[in-house]
Amino acid sequence: MRLRLVPETTNWDFFSRSKLWLGISAFMIVLALISFGARGLNYGIDFRGGTTIRTQSEQAVDVGAYRDALAALELGDITISEVFDPNFGPEQNVAMIRIQAQDETDSVSAETIIAAENALSEVTPDIRFVSVESVGPKVSGELIQTAVIAVVLAIFAVLVYIWLRFEWQFALGAVVALVHDVVLTIGVFSEVGIKFDLAIIAALLTIVGYSLNDTVVVFDRVRENLRKFKKMELKEVLNVSINETLSRTFMTSITTLIALIALFVLGGDVIRGFVFAMIWGVVVGTYSSIFVASTSLLWLGVKRDWTKTDGKAGTQFADIDA
């Protein structure tokens, strides 16, 4: 007996409540934007400049004592937090200390870091500094710019590709779904306050890639069914296509989630934020390819007369043979 995530044949109507789904999505987007506007993102030093020191000691972390020790150095804004992770041994007490940027361009000078390390060593003699990272505001400004360009460029490149391979309505539908996913992810980050750094941008782009992957598979089937059922209403065609690909959509999402959850639990705290972004992205991406991308496509409408103008559209790869 095979494991089946969805019944062998489904005939669910995904559009009967399309307004409700779009409404929920729109509401979530507004929430995300409000959260982003009100709380902002918890930018890491990659984007804000400054220094983070990761400490490790056998002695328990004493945030108050650390703060007092560093306050004497007058380094401005300092955040100290203890890090917990199921992978840590009993003798592994880890803290993250963040110090604001000290001048306009450069990273924090070696002397300042040594002074901070010495102050902490007095509090906890066996403390070790397992990583020290410092980014100057000049570079962090550029990094933020590059990151935004990367995300925009990715979305644009995808828009063009889908436009070439499908029709502009498909491209627009896919991009609406992408923007939906990216905005919701950013919203979650600002709401939960997870550190937003360069790796998260990589995660965002991966979400873009994944969400698209899903959307394209549905659209590919829509394209095929549009040719197959020439007289069928667009809504019906979309419904049939989503139902036909539903089992695949779930399979792939589940295998990807299995892998990501393994990484989330076992991969250590350093990349947990990154993996969290991707897990969220897979869930949202799966939802959006069905409810956002397809619904947008339904509202935009498509040109039905495929055969006359471009009979080979979408089949030019089909002659690849093993």
């Binding site: 490149a157 360069l198 698209l212």
Partner: peptide
């Protein structure tokens, strides 16, 4: 035969984002 076009399109789009990440990113990314 029929799954091919979906596979190709889905993977090319993901590949595009990987290329952009490679071009724009640095270090770990």
């Amino acid at each position: 035969e029929k799954a091919l076009s979906a596979i190709v399109d889905a993977n090319i789009t993901t590949f595009i984002t990987a290329v952009i990440l490679f071009a724009m990113g640095s270090g770990p990314v």
